[in-house]
Design a binder for these strands. Structure first.
Length: 463
RNA sequence: GGUCCCAUCGUCUAACGGUUAGGACAGAUGGUUUUCAAUCAUCUAAUCGGGGUUCGAUUCCCCGUGGGACCGCCA
């Protein structure tokens, strides 16, 4: 059995993480079934479609590792075909011209609203026997939808869904300006692309009932459908473009790794036993629509962070450094080539306290920056006794040829004894002098990650 | 409002009709450590309510309740 699926976003706004998950599910299934995954840009809304969003969509998918087969389809390029099908439907009597003015439709809607009944187009022009065709109105073409009976679809995620045909209106397939609408274009393209599985958000469920009617009258093979539950914001409603951290870019900026986000999205609405971490191969092998839940799930940033932390800890350090370098260049300050090696060598402990690339960057700043600035609160901690301790440290440190942990330990332990203090008493002022902050990596790690001269320089500056 | 869908810890979710309802994240506590963190151990925490069916319901059915999606010449 062949498996051809697609992801079909409209470039009317930036792609958000819910769309990315839909794409991921499609792609995973295509890989698993050795099928095809296409990307189709649905740009039939000329007003709102923007080139920049097409770019953003493609880049988002690429970043997370989703590669579509062949070149992306641009829906507007196939408009001619869509129109042909509309004409064919018209000719065969499956569609009709509707001469209602926009004003007339608007009034209808208002009337319904007042009466508290749901609006559905009144099918006025479905049977135009006694109507005069107005000369000043260009018609739209509506599909002649079934009026009676009911339909049942077998959804691969939701199971059987029943709906009465009477609630499906005669939807527009060709606008007044002659351009095709989504309902038509999507079906024609899915047919032409030989799509076997339409896997999309729950919000498309009603469209399926409209669209299968077009397949039926055209005698086209109907694909299988799966409607996956939507991702909700922490407020509990459909994720929108206005929600914080909704696009891939938002996560890149935070320093989230592609693998971590992929893993998070995979587990959102889907589970495989108690498994939490999936390699790419595992997700392809194990992912299945049967495991997809029916209820929507909320976005949880702390969980993304914790998965990210896991990946940061397990990824190879060289690889992590490359990501850090790239991140710093894009969102912070480029790491000077002369500092690269020191940072790379220190990855093992710089990454330990980090949930994001940005955290690692912050941990690394004392290496990256030539001048360290003290925060006023920290500066206060460098009182005369503290300064005395670090100047004594400097004296001893100076005498070491090659610093190592044992020697440093010896010096520090002696100072602790001599000044009758604890580790904090010595470590804290030293850390402030070297890093400019009370927080940071372990003191031995810090000292050994800097050159001897640099340590001397920074401590000398304090006194 | 109409139509459709959904409902297990705060969150993501496991559980052929039979489990002390499991795991993960978050939270709490304690140990360790070199501050923050990390780490280890422990703990808190859920089947929306009511009826059925059944020897036995988280699981099946019905009714409530709650949440969501859709209701465009957007996609």
């Amino acid at each position: 059995m062949s498996f051809i699926c697609r992801f079909a976003p409209s470039p009317t706004g930036p792609l958000h993480i819910g769309g990315v998950r839909t794409a991921l599910f499609n792609w995973l299934l295509a890989k698993k079934n050795k099928g095809k995954f296409y990307l189709r840009i649905e740009d039939t809304d000329k007003e709102r479609s923007k080139e920049e969003y097409i770019k953003q969509i493609i880049e988002s998918l690429a970043w997370i590792g989703i590669k579509h087969d062949e070149k992306e389809y641009i829906q507007s390029k196939n408009i001619k075909k869509h129109k042909e099908i509309a004409e064919e439907l018209l000719k065969k009597g499956f569609a009709y011209k509707c001469y209602c003015s926009e004003e007339e439709i608007k009034q209808q809607k208002e009337k319904c609203k007042k009466q508290g009944i749901p609006y559905i187009y009144n099918r006025k022009w479905r049977d135009p026997k006694n109507l005069d065709i107005p000369k000043d109105i260009k018609p739209v073409i509506r599909f002649k939808s079934k009026i009676s009976g009911d339909v049942k679809i077998k959804d691969l995620v939701q199971g059987e869904i029943n709906i009465s045909n009477s609630i499906i209106e005669d939807f527009v397939i060709l606008r007044q300006d002659g351009s095709p609408t989504y309902q038509l274009s999507a079906v024609v393209d899915d047919h032409e692309m030989k799509i076997t599985h339409v896997i999309r958000g729950d919000d498309h469920k009603i469209n399926t009932f409209k669209q299968i009617q077009i397949y039926e009258v055209m005698k086209w093979e109907i694909p299988k459908f799966a409607h996956i539950p939507l991702i909700h914001s922490d407020k509990g409603s459909k994720l929108s473009k206005r929600d914080m951290a909704s696009t891939i870019g938002d996560y890149i900026k935070k320093g989230i790794l592609a693998d971590a986000l992929r893993n998070y999205l995979l587990r959102l609405g889907w589970a495989y036993k108690d498994k939490e971490i999936f390699t790419l191969k595992e997700s392809i092998d194990l992912f299945d629509l049967k495991g997809v839940g029916k209820s929507p799930s909320k976005l949880d940033l702390t969980r993304i962070l914790s998965i990210n932390e896991h990946y940061i800890k397990h990824i190879e350090e060289k690889e992590l450094f490359k990501l850090l370098k790239d991140f710093a260049q894009k969102f912070r300050k480029s790491i000077d080539p002369s500092k690269e090696n020191a940072v790379l060598q220190s990855m093992s402990f710089l990454k330990n306290k980090a949930k994001t690339l940005d955290d690692i960057y912050c941990n690394s700043e004392y290496i990256i920056k030539d001048n360290i600035e003290l925060l006023p609160d920290d500066e206060k901690l460098l009182d005369p006794p503290a300064k005395k301790i670090i100047s004594e440290f400097l004296e001893k440190f100076n005498k070491i040829d090659v610093p190592n942990k044992e020697k440093l330990e010896e010096i520090i332990n002696n100072l602790i004894k001599k000044h009758n203090t604890n580790f904090k008493g010595v470590g804290q002022p030293l850390r402030i002098a070297l890093v400019g902050s009370r927080f940071g990596p372990g003191i031995y790690n810090i000292i050994l990650s800097l050159t001897k001269d640099e340590v001397i320089k920074r401590i000398s500056k304090i006194n």
